[in-house]
Design a protein around this nucleic acid. Sequence first.
DNA 1: AAAATTTCCGTGTGCGCACACGAAATTACA
DNA 2: TGTAATTTCGTGTGCGCACACGGAAATTTT
Lengths: 350, 350
Amino acid sequence: MKIRIKDIADRAGVSTGTIDRVIHGREEVSPGTRSRVLSILKEMRYEPDILASSLASRRPFRIAVLIPFHTPENWFWKDPMNGINNACSELNHFRIEVKEFLYDQFDKNGFLEKSVELLESFPDAVIAAPVFNHETREFFDRCHEQSIPFISMNDNIRHPEQVAYVGQDPRQSGAVAAQLMKTGTNGQGKILVISIARDMDNYNHILNREKGFREYWEKLNGSAVPEIITRAIPKDTYNYIKRTIGGMFEEFSDIRGIFVTNSRVYQVARFLHNTEQKNIMLVGYDLINPNIKYLNNDTIDYLISQKPHEQGYKALMTIFNALRLNKKPTPELLIPIDIICKENLCCYQV
Amino acid sequence: MKIRIKDIADRAGVSTGTIDRVIHGREEVSPGTRSRVLSILKEMRYEPDILASSLASRRPFRIAVLIPFHTPENWFWKDPMNGINNACSELNHFRIEVKEFLYDQFDKNGFLEKSVELLESFPDAVIAAPVFNHETREFFDRCHEQSIPFISMNDNIRHPEQVAYVGQDPRQSGAVAAQLMKTGTNGQGKILVISIARDMDNYNHILNREKGFREYWEKLNGSAVPEIITRAIPKDTYNYIKRTIGGMFEEFSDIRGIFVTNSRVYQVARFLHNTEQKNIMLVGYDLINPNIKYLNNDTIDYLISQKPHEQGYKALMTIFNALRLNKKPTPELLIPIDIICKENLCCYQV
DNA sequence: AAAATTTCCGTGTGCGCACACGAAATTACA
DNA sequence: TGTAATTTCGTGTGCGCACACGGAAATTTT
């Protein structure tokens, strides 16, 4: 039923050793038999038995991870790493090893150093998050030169050679936020779009989310459309935010909703809570603790989850499936845009 | 590093064959050595290598599935079965076999026949959906007698011996629907709760969803609370539904929202669409085609997904993990209560 | 033409486990 | 005490593959 190396060998009139050499692309095979074996392999649709293969090979399958490290103040990259490690432990029967190359997400040189270190370790595959766009692109080129397959997560840079991209569509998530806003405000009044970001971190995401948010209303015809006021806040200290948002409330009347384009939404929630403004609809991103706190006391109405854990998990699973099981993935693995409220929160917490 | 049977054998002063007999609970081992080996196994924390184990054993791991079949008119059980089959093909390296025992969900005798047939095939594990509560309970007892592990999905019956339950919390999903309703109506006006169900299928689910919906408003203090009017519709023909709902609109003024407690929400959507009532908020269940149609044309505002595919997938994965990998699962595997709108629909469609 | 390389390929062993077979030890029975 | 029956256990083989080793054939060198 199942085709084994032995079957191929019999058919080709050579020994299993030769088949093995062909399969693994090793030398010491004459061009003639090599091409003959290759065609028989294809013809008989040989697929290696991953059980026997993993059992017999001493060397583990080594995956290198190149993402920023997390700190007590910046836990953003903690969940993706956990997701990767969880996937790894689920697959550890297959002798998988994950090696972490973690860098400071604000230090370009640190990134470069780590990426060199990574390439010198000659891993079997790479998972990377493109924080520094240009540098990551060069790093991927280097991977390709060394013929190391790689996968990108969280932020798409569409390298022609990448196995896949795992992440969320930021435009679409902006549209989801707009739909929630429409349900809550019915298109009346004004809506603020607030981006709180120092150092432009994740700036692409923020821009695209806002874009998707605005496009939603443009596509709407016939219904009422609110006035949308955008503001970028370059500092994430509470005092600064309080002053900025407070100023906007003085400047504009009839504000019905606020859409915060990233995880800093808890700062706006804090402001609304402190000033006891109950009837403002508030939507933001990410299930981090301060956000959850304000979700539970009804200051934040909805959060959109990026599912960082699942991103890491899927990245590892996908690259394993692609390389060990020969299952070619869809090039863009889009993570669902989950809408979280107080009532369904519990199911999403790991 | 890793403990093998050989290590245990050396330690116990016997051969690997004896260890094998102890591990598999076979006879032909003296009580003395058996207990000695058992304690050494525990002490050294032996865990079998599932790779080698699957490779060496000729017999596949046979899983029996006892759920209703689906028809062109009743596709409810199609996705769970697909989820099971997908999980199976992901695990098929490990020599897994799924055998389906499908019955008519309205025919109790058919269920009984299939369950007898199943037990006579002596599977290694069972996945079942408890449509007939009492009969399923007896069936689980029978499984336990034959020492066949089993897992229940979609509807919880809490059998003491079951490996786990996979499904959604219907109460909580009712609360989610209520939260959406509150966002959309702000607690003003009246809300209808409609249950369209012939033959009381899934009746428990329906009751609990309504319960959760009502409890949400009871817990609310300080805010406006709408008047909630419940109605059960025992037939699912459009004419009947049109008459009933039409009557309610005549009877009650200021209806702002409708919550349909199951997948028949498309019938209500059809009514609203035909009568051109645009400002009624409509929330229901399940991503089935007619519902998706009305979601896309803005008649249905939100759908709650039961993720039937994921339920089947998780059921199989869980029982495999529990039995082959010795990973004990959490007894209740609750599927997230996903909120679907037109904008995030695409990510959830398989 | 013999020797020295180099190219090409077959054989054998082991990964950790399952299971069949048969041997040894023990017990039962005459 | 000897034999048969039974219990208890060890050995060997195979699952499909990876990889080391060494041998034969082809090629080059002397």
